[in-house]
Design a protein around this nucleic acid. Structure first.
Lengths: 211, 211
DNA sequence: GTCTATATTGCGATAGAC
DNA sequence: GTCTATCGCAATATAGAC
């Protein structure tokens, strides 16, 4: 669109590549692949389209690099490994759950969700790399935590992968759906804390009345 | 793209409008708004683009009509209302859950998910109408079911909306995520049945060992 | 059919590393 | 000074809304 006025032009190749990736991520994550345009990337950082094409070949490659990089980054920003020996099951689940909800409520994660969902049909590798880099890792981490407490005798179910799946998806909840869809703002830390306690209790004890 | 050879041309305006909506739905749900093109709609049903623009004004209106219609349709195809008096809590939840999973695993529902997620940022009303027409209805239905059994004393939690949310999102699970992302095929009826039983048991009893 | 948007390329000019 | 990446800008080509 408009020319860049005070453009940040990278001095050498490393800076340049990084600047391109950063600006392009903003453009692609805002509107998805088709709506994104190379001129808008240039408008953000200045310079020549030629450089982008020399470095990435075409629009698809640039897009793919951005999505995989973002997925990996979300992974890295993931939940801190607690010392499980010093805590109990309920506290461990609460800590895990709060970290997870904060992660999926972050604006960058939300954009990633929208774009990957919207583009996974046209770019099948996106769905795969997103799932492997994100949800699969989260599930594996939680399964480990559950395993720790199962060995202690705190957990009664046999299939921990299944239980981890159940808990994680329960945590996402309609809240996450609403936030992704843009019909309510991301949950605050306080709201997260309240929701997490309720869900952990359901996960641990169920809703059935004890007779 | 290519011309339609044996095109189904509607005789009157009603037929024509319906034919346009049907063909356009396929085009829009396959690739989202930007990738969809009016020429592809015409290629499916024949006739002139002028008719489409006369009837719907522009691409956005056509898109919006399709999405709201599809959401309403998904709602209509929703879970059958059981006679709750003749069954028990566990059976009622299983029946509800199987209906829900079959619904969200249907190809048309999956396409709707992808497109609405991908476009909700650019068309905020999409997110709202989708949520209100789909997940909100489902949640309300389940809350009613839970209320019935709570009055019977079968359920111990107080916030039934919260519990309904927890159960529904637990049902979606990573399976739904994987299917939407295209990294595994939709669950068969048999797989649904097995998964549902496990999740219902977690929802009712929790995973914690009873001491 | 008209007109705009945009991916992609071509090429001479330039600027910083050495 | 050379070298090389990048720039700036124009040109091509095609798609697609209307």
């Amino acid at each position: 669109m408009a020319r860049a006025s005070t453009a940040t032009i990278g001095k050498n190749l490393e800076n340049r590549r990084a600047a391109i990736l950063k600006a392009a991520a903003e453009v692609f994550l805002e509107g998805g692949f088709e709506r994104a345009c190379i001129d808008d990337v240039i408008a953000k950082i200045g310079g020549s389209k030629r450089t982008i094409y020399k470095e990435f070949g075409n629009k698809e490659n640039l897009f793919a690099e951005i999505i995989t990089a973002r997925t990996a980054q979300a992974l890295a920003a993931n939940l801190p490994k607690e010392e499980l020996d010093k805590t109990d099951l309920r506290s461990a689940l609460i800590a895990f759950a709060e970290g997870f909800l904060r992660l999926i409520m972050a604006p960058e994660t939300l954009s990633l969700y929208r774009v990957v969902f919207g583009e996974c049909r046209q770019f099948p590798m996106l769905g795969k790399s997103f799932y492997e880099g994100g949800p699969a890792q989260t599930r594996a981490q939680l399964a480990q935590i559950l395993d720790h407490f199962k060995k202690r005798g705190d957990i009664a179910v046999s299939d921990l992968g299944f239980a981890a799946d159940a808990f994680i998806s329960m945590l996402r909840g309609n809240h996450h759906l609403q936030v992704v869809l843009g019909i309510r703002p991301p949950l605050s830390r306080k709201e997260i804390r309240e929701i997490v306690e309720g869900k952990v209790d359901i996960f641990l004890n169920g809703v059935k009345a004890r007779r």
